[in-house]
Amino acid sequence: MIKLELADVGMRFGDVVALEGINLAVPRGSFVCVVGASGSGKSTLMSLVAGLTRPTSGEVRLDGYPVTMPGPDRGLVLQSGAVFPWRDVERNVGFGLELLPRLSKAERSERVLRYLEAVGLNEFRHALPKHLSGGQRQRVAIARALIVEPEVLLLDEPFGALDVQTKEDMQLLIRKVWRDTGTTVLMVTHDVEEAVFLGQRVVVLASRPGRVAADLSVPLGDHRDLSVKREDSFLALRAKIEDLVRAFHRTGGQGPRQVVAARSYTDSAARTRSAELSPPEPVEVTRPDSRT
């Protein structure tokens, strides 16, 4: 069953086309990662799904209903964390619950405690964000988003600013959260390794304008630990997707041949979307010469 759906979504800012003809279906309970180089409109896509901006064409649907504004059914975690600096950990996590009518204080703090436990921040519950590490702040942001029980968890480069070790801890945490809660997750990242490790599917965005270039399923099973990152099948898929991201990243000053090739590949990918995928040949053709 489709939880979240983007139907022919396009977004322009004046003359700049940020996203064009995005079609994407996220089934309930699935974990979908969107990768793409900078300028591919990843964050714009997130803000459209969150309802913070309205698309200039097409429609975002949640359970079949069009998304028109932000709401607690789509929890958002940003790269910056965006925790409230004046609230301690406990009050950050409890923010969404404070807004609900008919929820007793006792009930609220009981829930806050449960979610603090889940992200391992129990002993820091009275700490101010300025005294937390980057990873701890992201834990606060994740707990704060989860506590209002969103239908979809939106992760916008949530671990982009973290060091590698912390990042892997957080990846394991988010996998655990996903498996425990059964929530639907849509994650945007530029880190292909992360996308392959976390996602059941990886969607590659082409840049300028942002389009869906490829949509690959990750045949790794749902029980993954960090060691899977060293397996051949993981490395092969990661390499393949990294090549795709490169190939569809249009930087300034590149020749038209490249663009045309990328476009034709987009079309073929669009036709075979959610099928197993996909021809690696165009990747070789379109790899920028300047990179050698």
Binding site: G51, P70, S80, L100, A141
Partner: peptide, 15 residues
């Protein structure tokens, strides 16, 4: 105030 704080508040259900 950073826009991200405002965005996040809306997604948490604040009016």
């Amino acid at each position: 105030i950073p826009t991200s704080l405002i965005d996040v508040s809306y997604t948490l259900g604040a009016r």
